[in-house]
């Protein structure tokens, strides 16, 4: 290499070193790693938080509780705030993965409705602050179904051959069959589970497909008449297509919660609590509820919402309509039995 070349290389190296050093010094803000469901926040809220508290937020998303759980459990990821669902929170508490929250740092917790506190997954409410909640029910296309939809049994009706979409999710689909038969969604009774299995196998020829998120596209496009969906998605789909309506089956169903928690591995617990508190500020909670259309457990939000949405049973069902609605419990090792049942249904 000639002299010029060496000089050139030296200058480049020097510039690189300066660049690296300066970028270290540039941003001294604390970085808060937030891990949430995809499309589950009004992202402008994050900017507001960053400006207000001078904390940088690193925002990531997951698509199932299990994905999130595996990532945290394996220890590879370092997150400060998570948004798991009820049964996953229960499992994480059992496995000592969550940190107890200091509620002195979360004064806005007072806005959460009493009925959403101290739920079974976190009985003393030490670890979690509810973010959104909802139900599982039947979404149907009014142009294809002209009878009233009141029961899970309609999903077993020959009339709707190849027009039914089920969820490709063990617990939800087995849960639907259990509820149709009048059993608890968290049952550990093998006979009840076998009965649910038989029902699902009997239903299989009528089912068009077992789907995940694509249920939205399919129902909006009119590909099927009936589908098992989560209530928040139902509100969303109803806005896209006026042919769709949501029904809560009278046998009962699943009631679910997504809540904010802090994993034990978090290095910024105080900032994480600031974030959780911020998410419970009335205007911020309203912004989120308004953006994602899921049901908020926040007292003040309900006052600000569009009354039409508030009276929609898909979004805010009345308390008296929610009898026999079970919250999923962590099944621990018994999950294997559910898995076997589900495999037998799917492999049939």
């Amino acid at each position: 290499m000639n002299k010029k070349g060496r000089l050139f290389l030296g200058v480049i190296m020097l510039m690189l070193v300066v660049l690296v050093l300066s970028s270290c010094g540039q941003d001294k803000r604390v970085v808060l790693n937030v891990y949430n469901w995809g499309d589950y926040i009004d992202e402008s809220v994050i900017d507001t938080f960053e400006k207000k508290y001078n904390i940088r937020v690193n925002y990531d998303t997951f698509s199932t509780n299990e994905d999130m759980y595996v990532k945290i459990k394996s220890g590879g990821a370092n997150y400060d705030v998570l948004f798991p669902s009820d049964y996953t929170i229960e499992r994480m508490i059992k496995e000592d993965m969550l940190a107890k929250l200091d509620f002195n740092n979360i004064p806005n917790y007072k806005y959460i409705e009493e009925r959403f506190k101290n739920l079974d997954y976190d009985p003393q409410n030490e670890y979690s602050v509810p973010y959104m909640w909802g139900t599982v029910g039947i979404l149907y296309n009014k142009t294809m179904v002209d009878e009233p939809v009141t029961s899970w049994r309609i999903l077993w009706d020959q009339k709707y051959n190849k027009q039914i979409l089920m969820l490709d999710s063990q617990r939800d689909s087995i849960g639907v069959a259990l509820k149709m038969l009048g059993y608890d969604m968290n049952t550990r009774n093998l006979e009840e589970l076998e009965a649910a299995k038989e029902a699902l196998i009997q239903q299989k020829p009528l089912v068009l497909a077992y789907v995940g998120d694509d249920v939205k596209d399919k129902m909006i496009a009119g590909e099927a008449a009936l589908a098992v969906v989560w209530s928040g998605d139902a509100v969303n789909m109803k806005q896209e297509s006026s042919d769709l309506e949501y029904a809560l089956p009278r046998e009962g169903s699943n009631l679910w919660f997504d809540a904010m928690v802090v994993p034990k591995t978090s290095k910024h617990k105080a900032e994480a609590e600031k974030f959780i508190n911020f998410m419970c500020e009335p205007e911020i909670a309203f912004k989120n509820a308004d953006y994602i259309d899921y049901s908020s457990p926040h007292r003040e939000v309900k006052k600000m919402l569009d009354p039409a949405l508030l009276n929609d049973p898909a979004a805010y069902p009345k308390e008296e309509d929610l009898v026999n609605y079970d919250i999923f419990k962590d099944l621990g090792d018994y999950l294997k039995v559910y898995d076997r049942i589900w495999t037998e249904v799917k492999a049939h």
Binding site: E66, V207, D339, A347
Partner: peptide, 19 residues
């Protein structure tokens, strides 16, 4: 449409869902 469980689905299910 998830109606035809193949061996790949079975493996995925063991790792991601059942653990």
């Amino acid at each position: 449409g998830g109606q035809f469980t193949l061996i790949g689905n079975l493996i995925e299910q063991q790792f991601l869902l059942v653990g």
